[in-house]
Amino acid sequence: TTQFTVHSPEQAEQWKEYAKQKGLEVHVQKKNGTWHVTIH
């Protein structure tokens, strides 16, 4: 599991796309103005 924080919805979307291409599961949670992205 990879977990990191991004600071814009655009970055979060890019990671979603990346994960989809790799066939991975991605979870994005918005918290205090940042987005926590978890890739399984």
Rank of each mutant, 00 (worst) to 15 (best):
Q11Y: 05
T5W: 12
Q21F: 08
V26K: 00
A12L: 13
H40I: 14
Q11G: 05
S8P: 01
T34P: 01
P9I: 15
W35V: 03
T34S: 14
F4P: 02
H27S: 10
V28K: 00
H27Y: 09
H40P: 03
V6W: 02
K22R: 14
G33R: 04
E10M: 06
V6D: 02
T38N: 03
G33F: 04
Y18C: 11
K30G: 06
N32P: 02
E17R: 07
H27W: 07
G33Q: 05
Q21I: 12
A12D: 01
S8Q: 03
A19R: 00
T1E: 11
Q11D: 11
E17N: 07
Y18L: 06
Q3F: 11
H36V: 15
Q11N: 04
S8T: 14
T38K: 04
F4G: 03
S8D: 07
K30E: 15
T38D: 03
W15C: 07
G23Y: 03
E13K: 08
W15M: 05
K16M: 12
W35N: 01
K22I: 08
K30W: 12
E17I: 09
T2P: 05
S8W: 06
F4D: 02
I39Q: 00
Q14H: 12
Q21H: 08
E17M: 08
K30T: 07
K16P: 01
H40L: 12
T34D: 10
F4W: 04
F4Y: 06
H36D: 08
T1F: 14
K20D: 05
I39E: 01
N32D: 12
G23S: 04
T34H: 13
T5P: 06
T34N: 11
F4T: 05
K31T: 10
A19H: 02
G33V: 02
E10W: 08
Y18R: 04
Q11I: 13
T2H: 15
T38A: 05
V37L: 04
K22Q: 12
A19L: 07
A19V: 03
Q14F: 15
E17L: 09
E25W: 11
E13T: 05
P9S: 14
V6L: 04
Q3L: 06
T5G: 04
H7W: 09
G33I: 02
W35R: 01
W35K: 01
T38Q: 05
T1M: 12
T1C: 15
K30V: 13
H36I: 15
H27G: 03
Q3H: 15
T1K: 11
K31M: 13
E17V: 07
S8Y: 07
Q21D: 09
G23H: 05
T1S: 11
P9W: 15
W15R: 00
V28Y: 03
Q3A: 09
Q29D: 09
G23F: 03
E13M: 09
A12Q: 02
K31E: 11
V37D: 00
Q29F: 09
T34W: 12
W15P: 00
V6Y: 03
Y18V: 04
V26A: 07
W35E: 01
K16G: 04
H7Q: 11
Y18I: 06
Y18M: 05
E10Y: 07
K20G: 05
T5H: 12
V26P: 01
A19E: 02
Q11M: 12
V6A: 05
E17G: 03
E10P: 02
A19G: 13
E10T: 06
K16Q: 10
H36S: 08
A19Q: 01
E25H: 13
T5D: 11
K16T: 08
G23E: 03
A12F: 05
H36Y: 15
K20H: 09
L24T: 02
T38V: 10
V37E: 01
F4A: 04
I39D: 00
T34V: 15
H7E: 13
F4V: 10
Q11C: 14
G33M: 04
H36K: 07
T38F: 07
K20T: 08
E13N: 10
Q14R: 12
A19W: 06
H40W: 14
Q21T: 10
V28H: 00
E17F: 05
E25Y: 13
K22N: 13
K30F: 15
T38I: 13
H40E: 09
W15A: 04
H40F: 14
Y18W: 15
K31N: 11
Q14A: 14
T1Y: 14
H36M: 12
W15D: 01
Q21W: 08
K31A: 08
L24I: 07
G23M: 04
G23W: 02
G33N: 08
P9E: 15
T5N: 07
T1P: 09
E13Q: 10
K22M: 14
V37H: 00
V28T: 03
V26E: 00
H7R: 06
H27A: 05
W15L: 09
S8F: 07
Y18T: 03
E25N: 10
V28Q: 00
Y18D: 03
V6R: 00
V37A: 00
K30Y: 15
K22F: 12
T34K: 14
V6M: 02
A19N: 01
H27Q: 07
N32Q: 06
P9D: 12
W35I: 06
L24F: 11
V28C: 00
T34Y: 14
K20A: 09
Y18G: 02
H27P: 00
E17P: 00
H40T: 11
Q29S: 11
W15T: 01
H36C: 14
G33A: 04
L24A: 04
K30P: 06
K31I: 15
H40Y: 13
W35A: 01
Q3D: 08
P9C: 14
F4H: 06
K31V: 14
N32I: 02
I39V: 06
Q29K: 10
H36N: 06
N32H: 06
Y18S: 03
K30N: 12
Q14V: 09
V28L: 06
A19D: 01
L24G: 02
Y18H: 04
T1V: 13
T5M: 10
Q29P: 00
K22D: 03
T34M: 14
T5L: 11
V6F: 05
Q14M: 14
Q29H: 09
P9L: 15
H27E: 09
V37I: 14
E25K: 10
S8R: 03
N32V: 02
Q29G: 05
P9V: 14
Q11V: 12
E25P: 05
W15F: 05
G33D: 11
A12Y: 05
V37G: 01
E25S: 11
I39G: 00
T34G: 12
K30M: 13
Q3V: 12
K30H: 13
E25L: 12
E10A: 08
Q3R: 13
T2I: 15
W15K: 01
V28I: 14
T5C: 15
K16D: 02
L24S: 02
G23I: 02
N32R: 05
Q11E: 15
A12G: 03
V37P: 01
T2G: 08
Y18P: 01
V28F: 08
Q21A: 13
P9T: 09
H36Q: 14
K30C: 10
G23V: 02
K22H: 14
K16C: 13
L24P: 01
T5A: 08
G33E: 08
Q11S: 08
H40V: 14
V6S: 03
G23N: 07
Q11P: 02
K20Q: 11
V26D: 00
E13W: 07
H36G: 04
E13Y: 07
V6I: 05
H27I: 11
A12M: 08
Q21E: 11
P9M: 15
H7I: 08
T38L: 08
N32T: 02
H7K: 09
L24H: 04
W15H: 02
Q29A: 10
P9H: 15
T34L: 14
L24W: 13
W35G: 01
E17Y: 06
Q11H: 09
Q11F: 05
K31W: 08
Q11R: 06
T38H: 04
E10N: 05
V26W: 05
V6Q: 02
T5Q: 11
H7P: 09
A12C: 06
A19M: 05
H27D: 08
A19K: 01
E17T: 07
H36E: 14
E13D: 10
T1G: 09
L24D: 02
Q3P: 03
N32C: 12
G23K: 05
V6G: 02
Q29L: 11
T2A: 10
G33H: 05
W15V: 05
T38R: 04
S8V: 04
Q3N: 09
T5R: 06
H7Y: 14
